[in-house]
Design a protein around this nucleic acid. Structure first.
Lengths: 178, 178
DNA sequence: GCAAATAAAACGAGGAGTCACTCTTTTTAT
DNA sequence: ATAAAAAGAGTGACTCCTCGTTTTATTTGC
C-alpha cells in the first residue's frame, strides 16, 4: 500500500492502543503477549512494530490516553454521581483493573512512573482549585487525600468486584468539609 | 540428607518466602524469575520445588505472611503514628511496592484474590470495632473508607517515593469524626 | 515497476518446571 | 553391634516452550 492519509495512520495506531488496553484490562499487563495485541487489533505483527517500537511503548501510550474522570464540583451530588461513574466504568470496561495494573507497573518502570505521577499531580491540581474558599488554606492537603481516596475506590472495585460507593461519598465530603 | 526436624523444614520454607518477598518488593512480581528466588534463597532450583508447587504458590505464601499494620486506636496521635510507621516501612523495606504488586496480581489471579479479600475484610472489621460509640451506626462505612485511604497512602508512597502523611492523617480523622 | 505497507516466518533469549542422581541419616536384618 | 538397605533432602543440568523482536517475502496502490 502506498502513502496514506494521516487520519488513517492515526486510526491504525488507535486500533492498536484500543486492543492493548482491552487486553491489559482483562488479563493484566504481564499476561498479555504481543500476539494477543496483534489478534485483538486485527493487524499484523509487522504492522504493530511500525507504530510502536516495543511493548513498553504501547503501555505508555495506553497510560497516556487513560484520562481519569473527576467530579465537576465538590458537592455531595456531584461527588456521588462521579463515584457511580467510576463504578459503572469498572463494571463495563474493567477500567479499574487496568488502573491497578498501570500503577503496579509504574512502581517498577521509571518511564511509566513519570507519566503516572504527572497525571496524578494534574488531578490534584484540578481538585485543589475546586476546594471551597472557606478551606482554601488546606486546598492542597484536601486534594491530596481526595484524589487518593478516589483512586482507592477504583482499586477496591478492581479487587473486590462491586463495592458500594456510599461510604466513599460520605468520606470524600467529610474530607472536604473538614 | 535424611529426615530432618520440622523446624528445619519451616526455616527452609521461610528462606524461600523471604527471598521471594524481597525480590518482589524491589523488582515486581513479573520481573522476578525463579532463578532470582533460587539465588536469593541460597537453595537450589530443585529444592524450591520441593517446598512450593509453583511460582504462584510462592506469591500466595508471601501474601499470607504479609500482615498489614493498623493503628492501635482511632485518635489523632495514634493514627499519625501509624501513618509514619507505614511511611517508614515503605522507605526501609519497599513494603508499599510489594503491596501494589500483590494487589495488581490479585485482580488477575483468583486464588490470590481470595487471600487479599479476606485480609482486607479482617482489617475493616478491626477498624469498625474501634469506631467511637457516637458513630457506631456508621461503623462499617467508616471502616470501609478508612482502610481504603490507608491502603491508598501506601499506594501513593509506592508510586511517588515519599509523600507527607499529614494530609492523610487529617483526612482519616475527618472520616472518623464525620 | 516502484515505493510503501503488510504479513509471515525465523530467531535468540529467557523462563518455568522436571528428572535422574548424590549424599546423608535412619531403619532393618542378621 | 554392624552392615546392608531404604528413604528423604538437596542438586543442577536439561527440556520444552513462550515471548519480544527482526528479517524476509509478498502485496498493494500509484
Amino acid at each position: 500500500m502506498p502513502k496514506v492519509s494521516q487520519e488513517h495512520l492515526d486510526a491504525r495506531r488507535q486500533q492498536i492502543v484500543d486492543a492493548a488496553r482491552a487486553r491489559f484490562a482483562s488479563h493484566g499487563f504481564a499476561r498479555t503477549s504481543m500476539a494477543d495485541i496483534v489478534d485483538g487489533s486485527g493487524l499484523s505483527n509487522g504492522a504493530i512494530y511500525r507504530y510502536f517500537k516495543s511493548k513498553d511503548e504501547i503501555v505508555i501510550a495506553v497510560c497516556e490516553q487513560g484520562t481519569e474522570a473527576l467530579p465537576t464540583a465538590l458537592t455531595a451530588e456531584s461527588v456521588a454521581a462521579f463515584l457511580e461513574h467510576v463504578r459503572a466504568r469498572a463494571r463495563d470496561t474493567d477500567h479499574a483493573r487496568l488502573v491497578v495494573q498501570i500503577y503496579a507497573e509504574a512502581t517498577v518502570s521509571p518511564a511509566l512512573a513519570v507519566v503516572v505521577q504527572g497525571q496524578l499531580a494534574a488531578l490534584r491540581a484540578t481538585i485543589a482549585e475546586m476546594v471551597p474558599p472557606r478551606r482554601s488554606q488546606q486546598a492542597d492537603e484536601i486534594a491530596e487525600a481526595f484524589v487518593a481516596l478516589c483512586s482507592s475506590y477504583s482499586q477496591q472495585l478492581a479487587m473486590r468486584g462491586d463495592v458500594d460507593s456510599a461510604p466513599y461519598a460520605a468520606a470524600l465530603m467529610a474530607i472536604i468539609e473538614g
